[in-house]
Design a protein around this nucleic acid. Structure first.
Length: 622
RNA sequence: GGGGCGGUAGCUCAGCCGGUUAGAGUGCCGGUCUGUCACACCGGAGGUCGCGGGUUCGAGUCCCGUCCGCCCCGCCA
């Protein structure tokens, strides 16, 4: 391994092989940087150690040739040491050189110079095997390997079995679009590739494998993003006879092992827990970045008194005035302050309003509307200090308390918000701008008690927020039972049930504002499961048709169980400090789900289609 | 499905209000060079301006369509 040579190796006769990284031809002397997975070493070719014909061949080497050399490790002259390189104190004086494979000039450079822009992503994917030779991708995949080993070792140590589940499986009725695989032997029938091993892991619990995990490939046919690939990897785990706290313990010890082994960082355990309601009310999102404060503050009652039309118009409505205090934000330029409105508008709010506290008091958009006493109350409420900025967004907030004097005909306002999205965007923007999102901090948390149901506006019905096997919170079960005692509720009753805001035993793990994992305690009680199916409008027959095999299994002694799935690619991306999933996956797809190297997907011969009983509609022609 | 940005030499990019011979850096090729490490210096080759159509005396530049890549919204139980 070329990258491991050190001063202690001086004098050793070595045989090395690798790729020509760079060549520096000084005439009588030739230097070649030899590269393999372990790093680089300088080869020197000079008259005192190198036969003339070898020197001549070295002079004709070009980038990415594969060579084998024999030579002696020497300490470099003191003036020629390269402190940038781990092997910089030594070099190999070459006596013999074999060109194992010559390389054409690569279409994208492997040996990038400092300050060089990376080649276009299209080319990097087209010539992936060259891109993968680059340092940062080598590092990322090495890190990925280490992370995989840590996960396997840690979960094994905690008593988990690694069990593989099928890739050719049954279509799932809800959720993302499935990738389908036609069956040759069963005309007109299809397998689906798994979106996750969800049902299998529950079956494994029924089967008594009470601690299961898998590094699972999951496939979803949905449109992509920088942090979303059509095939991705999850750390999937499930365990029996557990409550939330047991699951959290496993998850956070696993993350602690990863951060320790990969980054050398000791995470603080246990992770803080906060409920979904708390997260939404304090940060406006279910994945808050907890590296900094700037929590939402409800100032509706104070600012309503101000002589300011926008504030006064909230009287008698469900509209709230909420804001965040940005410490030191008063230093922002006028241009940056104007930008805040754009950010709020882009996030769907009407705008943002701000005041700042300078040495001579409040200034800003609604400062004049705050007279002496009101200003006192405002300052007392917000804790605004000299140098601080306070930004408010007026609008409907998710989970805001119902206002008795509200004249609105619907209760939408308190469940379906919108303004919190804008204020969250402002919080994150200001957090960035004020340097509060410290990359060296590691703020994990469990967000618990996610809503059990969501409301599908188009279909006018309830849908399971996580998945239909997610257990409701015990305190909320009586409410559920009340609505579903007689069978599926009417659309009106379903809507009323949604407004009850039932909570579930579903949870997420959140890290620095990223959703890293989700999971839940599942339903193992058949009667309770029936109530949930009824609530989302599934009759017994439909439920059996869709989830029959799982329900059948649950007739034969299902243990209480629950688990989690961490997004492994995303974990590696953050551990590696990469900004795209594509940089931590060896062979990723483009945003149009194409594989540029091998050229997938591709058309297939009519004969092959016939064998699969498939006819392709010509949608592009005509 | 929708919106935004981009596609010019092998690579990264510049190219003004449409104007006559499309440039730079780097890489590549040739040469000089015994301590370089982004070697240096000298010289040279290298272009389907993504593709198709249109406007125009004239299109890399303007218009329409289309393909590809990236980012975002929808979507992702």
């Amino acid at each position: 391994m070329v990258g491991t040579l050190r001063r202690e190796d001086a004098g050793a006769e070595v045989r090395l092989a690798g790729w020509v990284h760079r060549r520096r031809d000084l005439g009588g002397l030739v230097f070649v940087d030899l590269r393999d997975r372990s790093g680089r070493i300088q080869l020197s070719f000079g008259p005192e150690s190198t036969p003339p014909e070898v020197l001549d061949r070295a002079r004709r080497l070009s980038a990415e040739d594969v060579v084998a050399v024999r030579g002696v490790v020497r300490e470099r002259p003191a003036a020629s040491v390269n402190p940038e390189l781990p092997t910089g104190e030594v070099e190999v004086q070459v006596s013999a050189l074999d060109v194992l494979a010559a390389a054409e000039t690569p279409p994208i450079p492997v040996a990038a110079s400092p300050g060089d822009e990376l080649p276009a992503e299209e080319l990097r994917l087209r010539y992936r095997y060259l891109d993968l030779r680059r340092d940062d991708l080598q590092r990322a995949l090495a890190l990925r390997h280490r992370a995989l080993q840590v996960v396997r070792a840690h979960l094994s140590r905690e008593g988990f079995y690694e069990i593989e589940t099928p890739m050719l499986t049954r279509r799932t009725p809800e959720g993302a679009r499935d990738y389908l695989v036609p069956s040759r032997v069963h005309p007109g029938e299809f397998y689906a590739l798994p979106q996750s091993p969800q049902i299998y892991k529950q079956l494994l619990m029924v089967a008594g494998y009470d601690r299961y995990f898998q590094i699972a490939r999951c496939l979803r046919d949905e449109d992509l993003r920088a942090d979303r690939q059509p095939e991705f990897t999850q750390i999937d785990a499930e365990m029996s006879f557990v409550s939330e706290e047991d699951v959290f313990g496993v998850g956070e010890r696993l993350m602690a092992a990863l951060w320790r082994e990969v980054l050398g960082v000791e995470l603080e355990l246990p992770f803080p827990r906060l409920t979904y309601r708390e997260a939404i009310e304090r940060y406006g999102t279910d994945k808050p970045d907890l590296r900094f404060g700037m929590e939402f503050l409800d100032v509706t009652d104070v600012l309503r008194e101000a002589d300011f039309r926008i504030f006064q118009e909230t009287r008698g409505t469900g509209l709230r005035i909420r804001g965040i205090r940005a410490p030191g934000g008063a230093a922002l330029s006028r241009k940056e302050l104007d930008q805040l409105t754009d950010i709020a508008k882009a996030a769907g709010a009407a705008g943002a309003l701000w005041v700042r506290r300078g040495d001579d008091g409040l200034a800003g958009q609604f400062a004049k509307a705050l007279d002496g006493a009101l200003a006192e109350r405002f300052l007392a409420r917000t804790g605004l200090e000299v140098g601080d900025l306070f930004v408010v967004v007026v609008g409907r907030y998710r989970l805001a308390p119902v206002v008795p004097e509200s004249h609105e005909g619907t209760t939408d306002a308190h469940r379906l918000g919108g303004a919190e999205v804008a204020l969250d965007a402002l919080r994150r923007h200001l957090g960035d701008r004020l340097g509060l999102r410290d990359p060296s901090r590691h703020a994990w948390a469990w967000v618990t008690e996610f809503p059990l149901f969501e409301w599908d506006v188009e279909a006018n019905r309830l849908v399971a927020a996580h998945h239909p096997f997610t257990s409701p919170l015990p305190q909320d079960v009586p409410v559920l039972e009340r609505y579903t005692a007689e069978g599926p509720p009417s659309p009106e009753a379903a809507r009323a049930l949604f407004d009850e805001g039932l909570r579930s035993r579903a949870y997420d793990a959140v890290y620095n504002g990223n959703e890293m994992a989700s999971g839940s305690i599942r339903i193992h009680d058949q009667a309770l499961q029936r109530h949930v199916f009824r609530a989302i409008g599934l009759s017994e027959e439909e439920a059996r048709a869709k989830f029959g095999f799982l329900l059948e299994a649950f007739r034969y002694g299902p243990p209480p169980h629950g688990g989690f799935a961490f997004g492994f690619d995303r974990l590696v991306m953050l551990l590696a400090g990469a900004s795209s999933l594509r940089d931590v996956i060896a062979f990723p797809k483009t945003t149009a789900a194409r594989a540029l190297f091998e050229g997938a997907p591709s058309p297939v011969e009519a004969r092959d289609l016939r064998e699969l009983h498939i006819a392709v509609l010509d949608e592009k022609g005509s």
